[in-house]
Design a protein around this nucleic acid. Structure first.
Length: 169
DNA sequence: GTCACGATTTGT
DNA sequence: CAAATCGTGACG
C-alpha cells in the first residue's frame, strides 16, 4: 500500500506544529525513504537564529513563499541542509531536518546520503522528486524537546524535537 | 569590492 | 579543540 503525500494544509500551519508533526513521517527522495527522527523549528519574527530574521533577501525568498516547499542552503563551504517551508505564504518559517532513519544523523550527513542538493531548493514537496509521506503508523517513541544545536542567537528557545531511544541525550 | 561568519562534520 | 571551505549579507 502506497503512503499518501502530506497535503499543502499540513505545512500551512504554525512552524512549531509542523515541526512536531513531521516526526515519524517518511521523507522520500528519488525512491530513498526514511522516517524523520529529529527536526528543529526556525521562526519568522523573534527568532534571531533564523535566516529569515533579517527579512526578505535573495537567499530567504523561499522562506516567505508558499508552504510545502524545500529550502536547501549551503553552509560552511561544504554542507547542504534541508528545511521544509511552513506557515502561509508571506510569513516566514521552516523546519530543519536533522536526522532521517537509515540515512544519517546530522543535517549535512543525511542530505549527502540521500542525494539532496541545492538543485532542490524551492522544490515543491507535493509534486517534485522530494516528498514527505504520511506515516502509516502512530508514533511509538517519546518526543524529546530541547534547545537547538549549533546556534548562538536565540539559543534559549526550546525548538528542537526528536524521537529518542530511551536514555539518549 | 572587501570581509567576517555560519542551522556542520571530521580528524587531531 | 581546530581545520576545511565558500556563499551570503553588511558595509562603504
Amino acid at each position: 500500500m502506497a503512503l499518501r503525500v502530506l497535503p499543502r494544509s499540513f505545512y500551512s500551519r504554525p512552524t512549531v506544529e509542523v515541526a512536531r508533526d513531521l516526526l515519524g513521517q517518511v521523507l522520500e527522495c528519488r525512491g530513498r525513504r526514511g522516517r524523520i527522527l529529529e527536526v528543529e523549528a526556525y521562526l519568522g519574527e523573534g527568532d534571531e537564529a533564523a535566516h529569515s530574521a533579517r527579512g526578505l533577501t535573495p537567499r530567504t525568498k523561499v522562506l516567505f513563499g508558499p508552504p510545502g516547499h524545500a529550502y536547501v542552503y549551503f553552509i560552511y563551504g561544504m554542507h547542504c541542509c534541508l528545511n521544509v517551508v511552513a506557515e502561509p505564504e508571506g510569513t516566514a518559517g521552516c523546519v530543519l531536518i536533522r536526522s532521517v532513519e537509515g540515512w544519517g544523523d546530522g543535517p549535512g550527513k543525511l542530505t549527502r546520503a540521500m542525494g539532496i542538493g541545492l538543485e532542490l531548493n524551492g522544490a515543491d514537496l507535493l509534486t517534485g522528486p522530494l516528498r514527505i509521506l504520511a506515516s502509516a503508523h502512530a508514533l511509538k517513541e517519546t518526543v524529546t524537546v530541547t534547545p537547538r544545536i549549533g546556534i548562538r542567537r536565540s539559543a534559549e528557545l526550546l525548538l528542537r524535537f526528536a524521537l529518542e531511544d530511551r536514555g539518549e541525550q
